[in-house]
Simulated assay, not measured.
Amino acid sequence: MTEQDKLVFEQIAGKMATNENLSQRARENSKEQFRIVLEPEVMQAFIERLQGDEKIVDEFMQNNDIRAMIINALLDEVYDQANQGFS
């Protein structure tokens, strides 16, 4: 599992943990009972994540302004990380 994979899981877990309905169901049930509630929610969360990623990829490909903004942000981030410790 890559760091990027872990980040995706952490983001999904964080979003699900702030869902009051899920939190309440977790408090009211054993872990095994909660698994039955959680499984379809996890499936939905991954579908929503995929759809969200699809949307941003479409925007990136079709909108020059958004593409330039993302490239500029990534340029700074990747360049700085790649050169960290080499100065």
Score class of each variant (00 low, 15 high):
D58V: 13
M69Y: 09
Q44M: 08
R67I: 08
I56L: 13
E10F: 04
I36C: 01
M69N: 12
R35N: 11
G85M: 07
E20P: 04
R49W: 07
T18A: 04
A13R: 08
K55H: 10
T2I: 13
I36Y: 03
P40G: 02
Q62F: 08
N64Q: 15
R35E: 13
Q84K: 13
I71T: 09
Q11M: 07
T2Y: 10
I71Q: 07
Y79S: 06
L75Y: 12
G85C: 06
T2V: 12
D5Q: 15
M43Y: 10
Q24S: 11
N83R: 05
L74K: 09
D58T: 15
D76L: 15
I71E: 12
E59V: 12
V57A: 14
R27N: 11
I12W: 01
F46C: 12
I70M: 05
Q4V: 11
F46W: 15
I47K: 08
I56Y: 10
E77W: 04
E10H: 02
A17W: 05
E20M: 05
F9T: 09
D65W: 03
D53R: 11
I56K: 13
I47P: 03
D65Y: 06
M16G: 01
R35M: 10
L38I: 03
P40L: 02
Q11C: 05
S30A: 05
D80A: 07
G14C: 04
E10W: 02
A17T: 06
S87W: 09
D76A: 15
K31P: 00
Q11E: 09
R25K: 13
Q84N: 10
D76W: 14
E59T: 15
A17H: 08
V42R: 03
Q24I: 02
I47N: 08
Q51T: 07
Q81T: 09
R67M: 10
R27P: 00
A73R: 13
D80Q: 06
E10D: 13
D65S: 13
